[in-house]
Write a protein that binds this DNA or RNA. Structure first.
Lengths: 193, 193, 193, 193
DNA sequence: AGTTAAACGAGACGGTACGTCGAGTCTTTGT
DNA sequence: ACAAAGACTCGACGTACCGTCTCGTTTAACT
């Protein structure tokens, strides 16, 4: 009746991903080894390799399994308020322990392994970007943004500085900082060129 | 007169860094091994470990040895023109082969190894940022920017989107894109909040 | 039927020991390295370390694997003849190439490594000594030796001078010399104290 | 007047040998390294290599520097008594700490390194053997031993069992055991062949 | 006394091997 | 049939010494 093979497989898959995150939190991604995950999960290494092609792929899946799309956009009709709400939620999830350090490491892995980069983009970055773009497009269509508003660039200006501070400068992101970015985007920098 | 010991040591140091970059270009940072660098450079492993504490540290120094600060700011009196010139030069150097892939990998390593992150910040990111800030400050003092202009945020908005596209979305940076970012910073996004 | 795991493991074990002896004969024990044995045998170093704790232990086992107990005692009823036969066989095996130099080196290793010494005693020296003692005891019980005959000392007088010449003075052992030792033991030195 | 160069050189030489023995006692010969001796003695490695060609050679000299020929034979006219006295002294020196373990290790090294073996023979084994032979010869000439007494064999029977027990069986030598060997040599084994 | 040459400490250097670890593959056994 | 268990080859890790080789710096012998 029930697909026992499937359910058993699912069990292992989840157990492995759970262990991966557990170990990742304990010792960090850099020191994580498939060997150790297998041992801790009580699973043969084969069983891991059968499902994932590399440590990065396993790690990506493990991390994504956490984020059951908590980062969806609300639509209250107020684009600024909606963006604020979503981005505040995003930094809360992605820049704070326990996920923060792991997400940082995942991006590090992606920069060293193109396959992980592609998968990360396909399964997380692009979908999220598209949600943002879609919300912005709605706002533009509703006249909250001018017709010539550059959605892609806006998206990058919303994300870029945050990633830059989180990954490159490595300072914790604050809600105040997010607000400054959003304000700059919508009300300008008071420049006088 | 000359410090012969020093010059000998310098020889090795440079030979090792040269070999590191060479091998890095050939096989990529991820597959690089200290063993291979030592062999190719005709040098004992100890001689490498004596100078650098990890593969990342060696790689960082090797890459920085290339950038004989070509990224200094001009000061023509026109802040926008000067920023354009510098940022165009920067993406030309840092986002194109041969340095581009290596720089990406270096940041990847930094995300996995806090020591490398700290060194990268100290020796490259922060000094570069400070040059940008200094140039912006001059412009503000000269009245080219309004007194309330947020220099730090401007810096992040200039860098963030570029890093975001280069590292996360992994699309090649174009001069046209740089110009759009600069324009958005100084003339606004035409938003209508 | 057959223990397949065992047979595979046995294959490697024997291949490693064979290679060890081969290399030992070529370059000598002192220059032997586990690295070289592994490479020559087409085996990972781990596979050697899994089985033996040190170069000495590997070497001991390798050498003992040769001696398919050819050194058993005959019992013709004539104790002198039997000892002669066995000891002549022993020096032929242990003091001549190819085993001679390796056996000498093994004892050298045993003198530097107590674990090897213990293993050598347990697996070779003591068993051989006990065979000799047993044969002597039979002879004494049969009245071929006087009741007060000191078996242990006899054992040492049979072995000691041979080891002394072989290891310390480092002269090749001859059958004539063996006969002089045996004769001295049984018929005395013609001393006149 | 005094050879000052010589005296300085002698100082170093002695300091190095002293340190060698000191370290040898602490960590054992097997773990001894020229590097460590140099460091401990506050001496450059060159200064050691200038004097000795190998660790074994250094160790041999260091050990021999201790034995300012305390093992000379007395000649009281009683060959048995004189042998006893000398051999008892020998085992006391060579089989007991602190020299015992080092002497054992030296012989181990000699078995692995022919140059050390040759030097050990030339500088210690052979001279000692000749003293024994000389003393025995005097006894034979004086008629204390029969004219056909085999001096070389006697020498081996006096030494062999002791070395055998000390090196191979690795049991501590006792004076009682020495006496049994001497008695066996001179009064026979009470065999009845 | 000043010069010169050897010996020296210090330690960098190219090597070789160590013993360990993990990757990814392959085999055996159990269920 | 599939999975745990783990043995296997391979490659690299970071360390320790080897014996050689500069480097200045004593030191003492000979101008």
């Amino acid at each position: 009746m029930t697909d026992k093979r499937g359910s058993r497989a699912t069990d292992r898959t989840e157990a492995i991903m759970r262990t991966t995150l557990e170990l990742g939190k304990e010792i960090g991604y850099a020191k994580l080894s498939i060997e150790a995950v297998a041992a801790r999960a009580g699973v043969g290494k084969h069983t891991i390799y059968r499902r994932w092609s590399s440590k990065g792929a396993l790690f990506l899946d493990s991390l994504l399994s956490l984020n059951k799309s908590d980062l969806d956009y609300p639509d209250t009709g107020d684009i600024v308020a909606d963006l604020r709400r979503q981005i505040h939620a995003a930094i809360e999830l992605l820049d704070r322990p326990p996920v923060g350090p792991l997400y940082r490491a995942l991006i590090g892995e992606a920069l060293l392994n193109p396959q992980v980069a592609a998968a990360l983009n396909d399964h997380f970055i692009t979908p999220q970007a598209e949600k943002t773009l879609a919300r912005l497009k709605v706002a533009r269509d509703q006249g909250q943004l001018s017709p010539g508003f550059d959605l892609d660039l806006a998206m990058d200006i919303l994300s870029g500085p945050l990633y830059f501070r989180a990954l490159i400068v490595q300072e914790p992101l604050t809600h105040e900082y997010v607000d400054r970015v959003i304000e700059a985007l919508f009300t300008g920098m008071e420049s006088r060129p």
